[in-house]
Write a protein that binds this DNA or RNA. Structure first.
Length: 294
DNA sequence: TTTTGTTTATCTATAT
DNA sequence: ATATAGATAAACAAAA
């Protein structure tokens, strides 16, 4: 019989929203920011489904970038010529996949525009500025690290196995996304609020990306780009209880001065500050921002 | 002209 | 069933 091996699953629509996909792309690169064209490329490289109807989905993607506050635009510096800005995740957007679904977030991450926000002079433009500043700095450093390492490593593109010097992995980091999907088994029942259907629902190829099974036929042939990401399935920062997890760990750097200490030694250290759930920026965070943005 | 961004409107899908 | 997140379409401006 015609072995279904090749493109059987691959043209199925991946179970990720554009937001998820974009976040993966951004977090998958060392600089944590990408120009639009690179986001396209990331998605197309990995998901054959998106190698068609590009006009359609790319328009949607662009719409998402502009429309969702969780994405921020970082202007190119003169030393980075090219088209368009870089796109990054807003540092305060937290873990938008809390509910375990990559299709739909529990709530949109929206910056206070003024109307609905009881804090007037907080968030919006200032947090953007701070974020931009931080990320630009981060980009510089990432660049340095990369060029330093480039000498020793085989060419592999921006997703080579080099972990960024900072141990911090955003919840959107592709390692985490993958790991979370894959690590569902075991005793993690508490994680999914309503018993998320992940494994019963769809066992498609992308659920094994991070599993380290290079020998899987699907892997090597259809998703070559993902093999380089075969890390030891990083233990995911699991939120203990879905119900009581209204704590959004502040991104570590928000508590620091932007350009200064870039070593978030342990960003996940069980801190449970009862902050606002990603929706609005917690007051402490905005306080930190105000300080940091002279 | 093409790419990149913004914005509005409408429809579909999903969680509650 | 309803509210809302996400997808798609489309008009349009600005930049390259």
């Amino acid at each position: 019989m015609p072995r279904p091996g090749r493109n059987t699953y691959s043209d199925q629509k991946p179970p990720y929203s554009y937001i998820s996909l974009t976040a993966m792309a951004i977090q998958g690169c060392p600089e944590k920011m990408l120009p639009l064209s690179e986001i396209y490329k990331f998605i197309m490289d990995r998901f054959p489904y998106y190698r068609e109807n590009t006009q359609r989905w790319q328009n949607s993607l662009r719409h998402n970038l502009s429309f969702n506050d969780c994405f921020i635009k970082i202007p190119r510096r003169p030393d980075q010529p090219g088209k368009g800005s870089f796109w990054a995740l807003h540092p305060s957007c937290g873990d938008m996949f809390e509910n375990g679904s990559f299709l739909r977030r529990r709530k949109r991450f929206k910056l206070g525009g003024g109307l609905l926000l009881p804090d007037p002079m907080t968030v919006s433009s200032k947090s953007q500025d701070a974020a931009v500043h931080f990320l630009q700095q981060q980009q510089r450093e990432a660049k340095l690290r990369l060029s330093a390492l480039h000498a020793h490593l085989p060419p592999g593109g921006y997703m080579s196995s080099v972990p960024p010097a900072s141990g911090f992995k955003h919840p959107f980091a592709i390692e985490n996304i993958i790991a979370r999907e894959y690590k569902m088994p075991g005793g993690l029942a508490a994680f999914s609020p309503a018993g998320f259907p992940l494994h019963q629902q769809l066992p498609p190829p992308w659920s094994v990306y991070g599993s380290g099974m290079m020998d899987s036929p699907i892997m090597s042939s259809d998703y070559p780009a993902y093999s380089l990401q075969t890390l030891p399935a990083i233990p995911v920062p699991i939120k203990p209880s879905p119900g009581s997890m209204l704590h959004t760990h502040l991104p570590a750097f928000l508590a620091h001065s932007p350009p200064q200490s870039l070593s978030p030694s342990s960003p996940q250290t069980g801190q449970s500050s009862p902050a606002a759930p990603g929706e609005a920026l917690s007051s402490s965070a905005s306080a930190a921002l105000q300080v940091s943005v002279h």
